[in-house]
Design a binder for these strands. Structure first.
Lengths: 336, 336
DNA sequence: TTTAGCATTTTTATCGTTTATATTTACCTC
DNA sequence: GAGGTAAATATAAACGATAAAAATGCTAAA
């Protein structure tokens, strides 16, 4: 069954194309009878208005682009699901772009998206903290952009983030309360805003409890699984921390593996707390104490923010910021 | 900085639009000097060819649609990542559609995709096994479709699957070898092809080892977390199995939770094996024995299959089937 | 000098819709 | 039945790009 175009449908009905078009968009004046006749025939002949023609004519695509550093990750897949839900509701389609934390890809994606393919972008930025002024060069008004979670602080655009500073402060405090005195902070890219904010919470919590901050307890990890495995293991051996606060889930896993290998007992020898969206944190050995971000909600909020801009074209308040709260859930990995 | 269109760029260069167009697609004849001049000016003025206009003219969208039952799931997010990688390589864009296992959504997505938005579809079908002949009604030639993992057997279209029967057989046999005699099989929708195939492997393995098959050891679960929690717990209490083989990851988790609650010791009282793409299966308590599907590879293969059709338009061999092998990784949850 | 041949560039028609504008039709009033 | 109004429908011009066909300018052979 081939699809047909508006002209063929018009011929089949002995009507003009404009009348057909009207039948598909309610507002214009058209008699109810004709409209019914058109819609029924359209169903019969399997007519679907060609989106590319519509988009070209209407100058909008009913599509939003989602750019994330990675996909196979609990946090991002939940966030995307949230975005998807809101977008679908609005009748929008979703394009997915994965940067693999590669800055070049990010720039390319954004550049190419300016060809009309999408009406707006929801993005969590790549880990590489290069010059991101390129974003200002592209028209942020033409193609609205909303950040979520990982952001560039120097780009003025709406954003959805979590209370990272407070969470990190509380997380560190939690470790201290559980008896830790030598707490390591593991981070993937400490110059990235999200790593910095979380680190500051860690530093300030130490300070509040009169624990001296030691630079070398900040462990800067990489994106590679293998490299991290080495880095983490070496850090545990060299630094002998009694607590670890990891800024991302992956590093908590790396620490677990390292502990298994090195025969370090969690939580007796080492307590671990991590940012994580893992739903099965209670099933780990031992169950993992997490700072859980409302991932799906973050996605939803980001999408809502974008649609608010798309609907009103409210280009004014570019410093619109939504802050959602994470929640610390204490489990066995930080038991006394 | 506003984007400009081909006409404005042409005017700026004192050339015709077709010459501009040629500069952007290598094949046609154009002098090197002019081409350079055009490309450099294009960069300067931030010109991006409008994709909707190109697509309309060329009758193709350089976009593929990916339809999955869910997103926040290790298996699917890895598979999508695989698809993404291949598609990006080919310069294609990716639209994501999540059915939430809702058959109606699936039909609607497919119907709407026939408006030219995508050149092809990669899909893992929804759990609801209704009449899916609708797929035949749409032109499978116009809009090629490739199934992966969850398929409809009665639809003739290329597919990428894993050796589910053999894996299930081996998984069941593994439980038997570890001493289980009363093995339950947990499944989400036993009428769905994937559930059926896996169940057959289970049944045949029992038979080979002369263990009578008991219908009530097949536990049909739901898609709801809460419902499953009740179903699984009740099943463990009523049936007292000494082994559980779960057809999807989620049911293994439900079983773990139930065991924690009921104080059933894994693996002493109950051994568990599950289909799963969980990368941190070794970190569970106890570490989970898995049948691991090559998720990313499945996605890649599915995308490759689709592109082979798109490139050659080889509409002929609709029964193209790629079978990849899963791997059983024995861990503590099935220890003797 | 004329003209065929070639490389390059321009002209024109087209992709499938939408919408401003124009036209037709139906109905009403005097 | 002429004229007017409102409602319904048709016409035609975009939207931005591409490809086929036509035109241009140039070189070199006749």
């Amino acid at each position: 069954m081939d699809s047909i175009n508006i002209k063929e449908l018009a011929e089949a009905l002995n009507l003009s194309t404009s009348t057909i078009s009207r039948a598909f968009r309610d507002n214009s004046d058209i008699s109810v009878a004709t409209k019914e006749r058109i819609l029924s025939k359209a169903r019969e002949l399997n007519y679907q208005p060609n989106h590319y023609a519509s988009n070209l004519r209407e100058q909008k695509s009913k599509t939003i682009a989602v750019i994330v550093p990675e996909l196979a990750n609990n946090y991002f897949s939940q966030a995307i699901h949230g975005i998807e839900r809101v977008a679908r509701e609005k009748g929008y389609h979703i394009l997915i772009y994965v940067t693999d934390d590669d800055y070049t890809k990010e720039v390319n994606f954004i550049r190419h998206l300016h060809n009309g393919r999408a009406d707006g972008i929801v993005m969590s930025v790549s880990g590489e903290a290069n010059d991101h002024n390129y974003l200002n060069k592209f028209g942020l008004k033409r193609l609205p952009l909303v950040f979520f979670d990982r952001i560039y602080e120097d780009i003025q655009t709406p954003r959805v983030i979590t209370n990272d500073y407070e969470s990190s402060f509380s997380a560190t405090e939690h470790l201290i309360e559980q008896g830790c005195r030598r707490i390591a902070y593991m981070v993937i890219n400490k110059s990235l805003s999200i790593g910095k904010t979380r680190m500051q919470g860690y530093i300030d919590a130490l300070s509040k409890h009169h624990i001296p901050f030691e630079e070398h307890l900040i462990i800067d990890c990489s994106n590679s699984y293998d490299e991290n495995s080495v880095i983490v293991k070496q850090a545990l051996i060299d630094l002998k921390p009694d607590g670890v606060f990891t800024s991302v889930e992956r590093l908590a896993f790396a620490t677990y593996y390292a502990c298994y290998d090195l025969n370090i007992k969690i939580p007796q020898d080492l307590k671990i707390i991590s940012f994580s969206s893992l739903e099965i944190a209670p099933l780990l050995n031992p169950s993992l104490t997490t700072i859980t971000q409302p991932a799906a909600e973050i996605g939803e909020e980001a999408a809502n923010l974008l649609f608010r801009i798309l609907d009103n074209r409210e280009t004014g308040n570019h410093d619109n910021e939504v802050v959602l709260n994470s929640k610390i859930i204490a489990r066995n990995s930080t038991m006394k």
